[in-house]
Amino acid sequence: MNDKETTHFGYKEVEKDAKADMVADVFHSVAARYDLMNDLMSGGIHRIWKRFTIELSGVRKKNAVLDIAGGTGDLAARFAQIVGPEGRVVLADINDSMLQVGRDKLLDQGRQGNIEFVQADAQFLPFPDDSFDCVTIAFGLRNVTDINLALRSMLRVLKPGGRLLVLEFSKPQNSLLSKAYDAYSFRVLPVMGRLVTNDSESYQYLAESIRKHPDQGTLKGMMEDAGFCQCEYHNMTGGVVALHRGIKA
């Protein structure tokens, strides 16, 4: 009998230890065309969602910011501009392919000096306690094996008064939109993935992982259980995406 703990990988039940490698394979496969696919899949709206995240982060000059699962560096680039030369931005990602694409992109844009690149697992962040004014994770939390462990890790590295912002796909609030969104996710996205990255399975996983991710209320409860206070969320595009914010007391 197999008594190992399991978790979900899309709709599949897999051993907990295996999920990280399986997710890594997905992102190794799509890293090179990640930005292009994001623009195609969302019609460019992901930039608006990220912009709202930056607005709500309250990040100011000289702040220290950690962008977990920072991928190709969209948030980190903007934060680096806001915190200025006396601030610090850490772009962290568990996946070395994504980190490499992000690092190359930001260096090509001439952004350096206040940005560090760190390969790190969100569940076991390699930073001292109370290090950051703001921690963000955009479209990354659903890929983490143990969300509760990751939230506690993020709380630990935040300074008291620091903010955690979780931008993630969520549950549409309108039944009609929900049906249209389902059809789009399961019929259009895999085809688009096959055409652009020659990989439909990764985008099938994307659609499935979104459905398995906790809804708005559940995630807010998980943040509160982890120790965050003043937790709130903002539905965007009818709840297709939600931005959660919690503060470390």
Binding site: I45, W49, E232, H234, N235, M236, T237
Partner: peptide
């Protein structure tokens, strides 16, 4: 939820 208007709309308008 704290806002009634979808933030996507006013954020897009501000971005433009």
């Amino acid at each position: 939820m704290t806002t009634t208007i979808d933030p996507t709309l006013h954020t897009a308008a501000l971005a433009a």
